[in-house]
């Protein structure tokens, strides 16, 4: 099972890309843990997580093909 990860704002600088694919992540907590392990700088950044465009408070189960976005604080307008 695979999920697509979308990165925005300052996170694109930490990762050096705007999206990546992760395999075998059961839920959004697993995504956070996996990415924070690979990119320790992520731990210093405040960000929200959205699964298929819905902001997650807490943890959410993922299924194959879902899109998880990591979003730093917004600054539109």
């Amino acid at each position: 099972m695979k999920v697509e990860i979308l990165l925005f704002g300052r996170l694109t600088e930490i990762f050096g890309v705007t999206h990546l694919l992760l395999a075998d992540v059961a839920d959004t907590d697993a995504v956070r843990n996996r990415l924070e392990e690979q990119f320790p700088a992520l731990k210093q950044v405040k960000y929200q997580v959205a699964a298929d465009q819905l902001i997650i408070h807490g943890n959410k189960q993922l299924t194959d093909g879902m899109t998880v976005a990591l979003m730093p604080p917004f600054s539109g307008g």
């Binding site: 925005f8 704002g9 300052r10 976005a69 979003m71 730093p72 917004f74 539109g76 307008g77």
Partner: peptide, 14 residues
């Protein structure tokens, strides 16, 4: 509208 746009739209300014 302006308040909600600033708080809720996923837009980033560099």
């Amino acid at each position: 509208l302006v308040e909600r746009i600033k708080a809720e739209l996923p837009i980033w300014g560099k």
